[in-house]
Write a protein that binds this DNA or RNA. Structure first.
Length: 459
RNA sequence: UCCCCGAUAGCUCAAUCGGCAGAGCGGGUGGCUGUUAACCACUAGGCUGUAGGUUCAAGUCCUACUCGGGGAGCCA
């Protein structure tokens, strides 16, 4: 058994005792009488300064104390006479657990995020990525806590599905057939030889699978990976990302929006409290207005306008925009940023979109031409959430599915939910990694995911 | 997929009109010092992304490609 105390624990404890720490050297420097090493073990953002008395430690023993080396140090926790830290470890023993050679790529100085992206195995050792991944953990917990406190049940939908979830994006196909010799029959792929004896895909959304659970358990949420084969090569798209998809029986669109807003406020408050050091770090190094962003989320009510009102607002801004949308257009990222950034200066809900630009499952409004859908646009990052009240009336749902050219037989189970004990219900989807971008200020989704998968690239 | 920008030492970047390849950091050596991305001196380190072309001369201009970044579209 390895005896060891985390640096987090050391820094939170009292001075005047012996301990043992392990960690990676961030910086090291030697003076005539003493040598210093700042070591970090990932348990917290702060380094522990370890001091070596040079009468006790020969030059030879200290020579392995290089940036990146993994070390074990034992000694006394003492008050630091220096300025930069409250306490430090006065070492009695030093062991180089894992040495480094001079090819170790991480240096004391700042590296570009692009450079670090090329080494996903090493970048967690930098302050930036350690902070991102620590916050990622806390945000996950915030999400589970929020839904638990709200009376939701956490469900795990299948990742392999038989449907290609209408409208949600391109799918990755899953097969056990050899691609070099795909069984064919009458010019078509013969799926009777495939693993499931039918085409199978990686899930692009858990919504359709979550609805039946909501119509039994009341309030449920999913939180897991989603796969999209969209050839979108942008800083906000990943081929594999995590989504939060709550689904609630007896929720109309307004209930839905209220929930989204409570969710966002809860997450921001939770992270601001639990990750105060990390938030401060990101504010200092990446987004000077991050604190303001948190305050805006927590303290202000989100904006709420309809698609129609948004169109009006955008046409008034006309000259300042590249394009002005007309009825039936989807909003571009420029429109989203304008509404959230310039018009409201805070996250804003846009509701009641034309039916023709939204999927078949969104509930048709009384006007017959719009649907009870909602998007949440945030300043800087654009669309964060997409949701809707679901169409619970069988005849409406069938009509819209037919209009969309869908094979009703494939969705028979989905339609049966409306045939037997249907109920008004709503839900939404939120991109977890984008939320993390919003709360860290990181501007590329590839910098908030440990091993990003993107169009044309596996890091 | 389209548009724009970029690629120079291990890293971050300079290099004027096309005219000798530079600095800081990191590495090595020495000095100084309870130091804080320590500091000072010296030192090693380069087929300027790849392949062609123009020119007396190309890091610099032209073409193609590769890789990286940003934007658009689509979405979360």
């Amino acid at each position: 058994m390895i005896t060891r105390e985390s640096i987090r624990s050391v820094l939170q404890s009292e001075v005047g005792r012996e301990t043992v720490v392990f960690g990676w050297v961030r910086t090291a420097r030697a003076s005539r009488n003493v040598a210093f090493a700042a070591i970090n073990d990932g348990s917290c953002a702060e380094n522990l300064q370890v001091v070596f008395d040079r009468e006790r430690f020969s030059d030879d023993r200290l020579s392995g104390l290089l940036t990146g080396a993994c070390v074990r140090a034992a000694g006394a926790v003492v008050q630091s006479p220096g300025q930069g830290q409250v306490m430090e470890l006065h070492a009695s023993t030093l062991e180089i657990v894992g040495s480094v050679d001079d090819a170790y790529p991480l240096q004391k100085k700042r590296h570009s995020l692009e450079f670090l992206r090329s080494m996903t195995h090493l970048r967690p050792r930098t302050n930036t990525f350690a902070n991102v991944f620590r916050m990622r953990h806390h945000l996950c917990l915030a999400i589970h806590r929020f839904f638990d406190e709200e009376g939701f049940f956490y469900i795990q939908p299948p990742l392999i599905t038989s449907s290609d979830a209408e409208g949600a994006g391109e799918t990755f196909q899953v097969t056990s057939m050899p691609l070099t010799a795909v069984p064919m029959s009458e010019g078509r792929v013969d799926f009777s030889h495939d693993f499931f004896r039918a085409p199978a895909f990686l899930s692009v959304s858990a919504q359709l699978e979550a609805e039946p659970l909501a119509l039994a358990l009341g309030k449920v949420y999913t939180f897991g990976p989603t796969f999209r084969a969209d050839p979108s090569d942008t800083r906000t798209h990943a081929a594999e990302f995590w989504m939060i998809e709550p689904e609630m029986a007896f929720f109309d669109l307004e209930d839905n929006m209220n929930l989204i807003e409570r969710f966002m406020k809860y997450c921001a408050r939770y992270v601001a409290e639990r990750c105060a050091h990390e938030v401060e770090f990101f504010q200092t190094h990446y987004e000077p207005r991050l604190g303001e962003r948190y305050r805006t989320i927590v303290e202000n009510e989100f904006g709420r306008i309809t698609y129609k009102e948004a169109l009006k607002s955008l046409s008034e801004a006309g000259a300042n925009l590249e394009t002005v949308p007309v009825w039936g257009d989807d909003f571009t990222s420029e429109h989203q940023r304008h509404l959230a950034g310039n018009v409201f200066g805070r996250p804003v809900f846009v509701t009641d979109f034309p039916a023709c630009i939204k999927p078949f499952y969104m509930r048709v409004n009384d006007d017959g031409e719009t649907v009870a859908g909602v998007d949440l646009f945030a300043p800087v990052v654009g669309e964060l959430v997409g949701g809707s009240q679901r169409e619970e009336r069988l005849e409406h749902l069938e009509r819209r599915a037919r209009q969309a050219g869908m094979n009703l037989e494939t969705y028979r189970w989905y339609l049966e939910l409306r045939r037997w004990g249907t109920a008004p219900h709503s839900g939404f989807g939120l991109g977890f990694d984008r939320l993390l971008m919003y709360l860290t200020g990181m501007e590329n989704i590839r910098d908030v995911i440990p091993y990003p998968r993107a169009f044309g690239k596996m890091y």
